[in-house]
Amino acid sequence: MLKTYRGSCHCGAVQFEAELDLEQDSYRCNCSICRRTRFWVAVARPEGFRLLAGADMLSEYRFHSRKNQHLFCKHCGVRAFGIGNDTPIGTMYGVNIGCLEGLSEEALARIPIRCVDGLNDRWQTAPAFCAHL
């Protein structure tokens, strides 16, 4: 069930709201950037995401196909969300679950996780090894 969550980067300069269903799969990816940043993604549709503050504090990084926007706070460096423009479901906002406010450790532990093989562009397949993700 969709619920509205608030979130922010570490320093609070970037703040957002997202409509997320945390009973659905979240994602851990083994691609070069997600593996390095330990990005844990919940998916929000464009109409379910609102940037509340900090647009001017975001720095954008694009690599490989340059289609997806990896956004970071210029001050604290936290990647609170990104915009996937070329994904299997079309445009989406990838919200970093670690940046959501008001979730207990118990609630976080209940979120289902699907590992995806982004390293090899096999988004519907889990990598052979994913415990480290």
Rank of each mutant, 00 (worst) to 15 (best):
W123K: 02
N96A: 07
I89C: 11
N30R: 03
K74H: 10
A80C: 10
V41N: 07
D25G: 11
D56W: 04
G12A: 00
I97H: 00
N96K: 10
H75K: 14
Q24C: 08
L71H: 05
K67S: 11
L58D: 05
A128G: 11
N68K: 02
Q24I: 08
K74Q: 10
Q69T: 10
L119K: 07
E19L: 08
F39D: 02
C34N: 01
R35F: 13
F72A: 03
F72L: 07
R79N: 14
C11W: 05
A131T: 07
L71F: 04
C73R: 08
P46D: 10
A18V: 05
N120M: 03
P112H: 02
M57H: 14
H132R: 06
D121Y: 15
F16T: 05
G84C: 00
H75D: 12
Y27D: 00
L103M: 09
E19D: 15
D117W: 02
H64L: 11
C99A: 12
T87W: 03
L119P: 02
C11H: 03
W40V: 00
I113F: 11
E19I: 09
V78G: 07
G90P: 02
V116T: 10
T37V: 08
R6P: 06
E47P: 06
V116S: 01
D56V: 06
E19K: 00
L103H: 08
I83M: 12
C34Y: 07
L51D: 01
E106T: 09
G54P: 06
H132I: 12
T37R: 09
D86A: 15
G12T: 05
G82P: 03
L52F: 07
G82D: 09
H10F: 15
N68G: 07
C76R: 03
M92G: 11
G77A: 07
A126T: 04
N68C: 10
L133F: 02
V95W: 05
G118M: 05
S104N: 04
D25K: 14
G84Y: 01
Y5V: 02
A107T: 15
R62Y: 07
R66A: 12
D21H: 06
T4M: 03
D21G: 07
D86C: 12
C9V: 08
D25R: 15
R114P: 04
A80S: 14
G77I: 01
Y93N: 09
E47N: 10
R28H: 12
R122M: 00
E106F: 13
M57G: 10
G12H: 08
R66T: 15
P46K: 05
A128Y: 04
C29V: 04
A55I: 01
G118Q: 03
E23G: 15
E23A: 15
I111K: 02
H64Q: 15
